[in-house]
Design a protein around this nucleic acid. Structure first.
Lengths: 254, 254
DNA sequence: AACGTGGGACGACATTGTCGAACGTTCTGC
DNA sequence: GCAGAACGTTCGACAATGTCGTCCCACGTT
């Protein structure tokens, strides 16, 4: 490999560290084990290109505005998102719940699109946010069809968010097998108490799973504990929409 | 200056080029005057850190998912935005128009927040988008109070979007002086025909202008040609909200 | 008022990134 | 269906480039 440009990797690591908030020079340097001067040079360069900004008053560094534009440019170029947007609106309208579209990023789920629940106005926009893969329906779908991501996720301890969160690697492996077999995933109160979600895979060219789409809402309307036709209808709805997106996505070459 | 890390600057330039869409290796290399192998090495590194993705089928490169998360992390840390959000909702409700909050990024205006027009549901989310500074009310405000950005913007020819776009540097200088004097800016059909906007500055610690907030809508409701009390009331409303945000922002240290 | 901390600058060393050239593969056009 | 070109990729060598230890300065603290 004649490539891996060290300084760029370090710059990326610095940006990732800064994503957690405002930090001082030495804090950044220490958390990455870099020399102060080296960190300073990289930070200065990142500042020059607008990826990092410095608070004049405190001297602390934070992410820069140029990243916001790049992030939104990513969304513009993202075919999964552009194809799925219309279907997501339709799913939200028909299910009456909030809709999320996500893809894998490392061992987490990156939300690339979010439709608010139709009746509810005060919600936070979650585009760009990261969800734990093992505690969300979207994440279970994505892990079930991405062996690499699944392995990476199971390599580390699974963080517990509620009493229902699946923390055992064996249980998770079983769960993923089931998801793979039936073609959809669910989660009830595993991330947030009394919140549940259902999701299904979106496939791109050649049947490869490139993302997932799902609905999220109160456990009493979506949860596993709810048996009967309404739950089955919801699952069918989500799966239908996911298949529709897949069809759109597979049809044309990007 | 012992810093400017060349490879990082080049990587940033590559990302900026890729923001315009999917590009091949040689296209990127040529547009930056870099050797093919150098470009390849940087792209590979960026791919490794998730800032760039490669289409397996076509070999073309595009921006990566990690940037979306960094972009949204920027928003989370952005104090201008977090303080202004509540006021923006209120402004949208009271004016009945779409509200934008922006800040300067180079010679353009970066939208950091966007509230849809209350009655209209089908609108595109513009957070992260760039507006031309000379053809938007937000931009005029920001340029009026940022001499550096104004100079940089006037150094290049002003692009014409409609017949009403101000393209003369002298006329723009006059306009900016007026904006500075009266404390708000407007634009009528200068960017999009029959669309108009009004904006006012947001000041941070020490009275420095750190952003702008404004409303956008049909020229017949917002435009300069509209004289009378409704226009004056709208301007007063925007200015009041801008001052309120400034007060919030100046109160606490970040 | 002295101290400690944090951000910033300098200069030397060798690590590290860059480049020209060559390879294999995939589309294009005849 | 074949030749040609264009593209992404790899290789190896040179020196340009980034890195690090050290020192400096300003601010807030004890």
């Amino acid at each position: 490999m004649p490539g891996p440009v060290q300084s760029i990797e370090r710059a990326a690591a610095i940006l990732r560290v800064l994503a957690s908030g405002r930090l001082g020079l030495v804090e950044v340097a220490n958390s990455l084990g870099l020399a102060k001067a080296t960190t300073h040079g990289i930070l200065r360069t990142l500042q020059g290109v607008g990826f990092v900004e410095q608070d004049r008053a405190t001297g602390k560094y934070q992410l820069g505005a140029a990243l916001l534009h790049l992030g939104s440019s990513y969304l513009d170029a993202n075919e999964l998102r552009s194809r799925a947007i219309n279907w997501a609106d339709s799913l939200a309208a028909r299910s009456g719940e909030a809709v999320h579209i996500g893809r894998i990023l490392g061992t987490e789920v990156l939300i690339v699109h979010h439709v608010f629940r139709p009746d509810d106005t005060l919600q936070a926009l979650e585009i760009g946010a990261l969800l734990p893969a093992h505690a969300s329906a979207l994440g279970k779908v994505l892990l079930a069809f991405d062996a690499g991501a699944a392995e990476a996720t199971l390599a580390a301890p699974l963080i517990s968010f509620t009493r229902r969160t699946i923390v055992s690697a064996r249980a998770m492996t079983r769960e993923l097998t089931q998801v793979r077999e039936r073609g959809w995933a669910s989660e009830t109160g595993e991330m947030v108490v009394d919140q549940a979600s259902v999701a299904a895979p979106i496939r791109g060219h050649g049947g490869l799973v490139v993302g997932a789409i799902g609905v999220t809402g109160p456990a009493e309307r979506i949860g596993d504990d709810l048996h009967g036709s309404s739950r089955a209808a919801l699952v069918a709805l989500v799966r239908d929409v996911a298949r529709a997106v897949s069809r759109d996505l597979g049809g044309s070459r990007g």
